[in-house]
């Protein structure tokens, strides 16, 4: 993601066109992430609006930002937490947001029965993990983010992210007998 750093530098240095580029590159990623966190369309659009407006307005103060994408994801997550807090009317705790994983296929040529089977299996597998494990695997797999980048978003150390990924996959490995059964079941009910 070297080019993102370059873009980030240009943007923070005051290039407005880069905002179009950042928006086109990341609005959908933020939206998809927010959907997984369980927010509705309009709330997500509000959060994207606030995050980008804030980025534009405050960019001269953001010299310390190393990676613009992880900054955007983190700011977006915080904004959603704000919304949630407002909604629940609680102030004492930071609400925990779970990430739900929904599987789809980029290639429409895949056999529908096989796709349905694979979808059931993968969704069961992934949704059994902890929110942190899921988030780390999701960001790594979908956006090829570096561990350091994910660490900034989840507000943990890169080492911890590495652990989330390997522990998550390890947990799934130990559960695999059950998964096999699940695959069989999904064939029977299909």
């Amino acid at each position: 993601m070297k080019h993102d750093r370059i873009i980030g530098r240009q943007f923070l240095g005051g290039n407005d066109d880069v905002c179009v580029y950042l928006y086109n590159s990341y609005a959908d990623q933020l939206y998809a992430y927010g959907c997984g966190l369980g927010f509705d369309r309009e709330t997500l659009k509000d959060a994207i609006h606030d995050v980008f407006l804030n980025l534009l307005a405050r960019r001269r103060e953001l010299g310390g930002v190393k990676n613009i994408r992880s900054y955007l994801f983190r700011a977006f997550y915080n904004r959603l937490i704000d919304f949630k807090r407002h909604e629940c009317d609680t102030t004492e705790l930071t609400p925990q947001l779970d990430l739900r994983i929904t599987v789809s296929f980029a290639d429409s040529l895949i056999d529908t029965e096989q796709a349905a089977r694979l979808k059931t299996m993968l969704e069961h597998m992934l949704n059994e993990l902890s929110p942190m494990q899921k988030s780390a695997i999701y960001m790594r797999y979908m956006y090829e983010m570096e561990y350091a980048e994910i660490a900034e978003i989840l507000d943990v150390t890169p080492h911890a992210v590495r652990k989330f990924v390997s522990k998550g996959l390890g947990k799934l490995r130990s559960n695999k007998e059950r998964l096999l059964l699940l695959a069989l079941l999904s064939t029977l009910t299909a």
């Binding site: 179009v20 928006y23 609005a27 959908d28 939206y31 998809a32 992430y33 959907c35 997984g36 659009k45 994207i48 609006h49 980008f52 739900r100 994983i101 929904t102 599987v103 789809s104 296929f105 980029a106 290639d107 895949i110 694979l118 993968l122 992934l126 999701y138 797999y141 979908m142």
Partner: peptide
């Protein structure tokens, strides 16, 4: 390889309007 996780997107018009 063609598996996508949470592949939700805004509609093009919606995205432009938001921008």
């Amino acid at each position: 390889g063609s598996v996508r996780l949470n592949n939700f997107t805004l509609e093009e018009g919606e995205k432009a309007e938001l921008y």
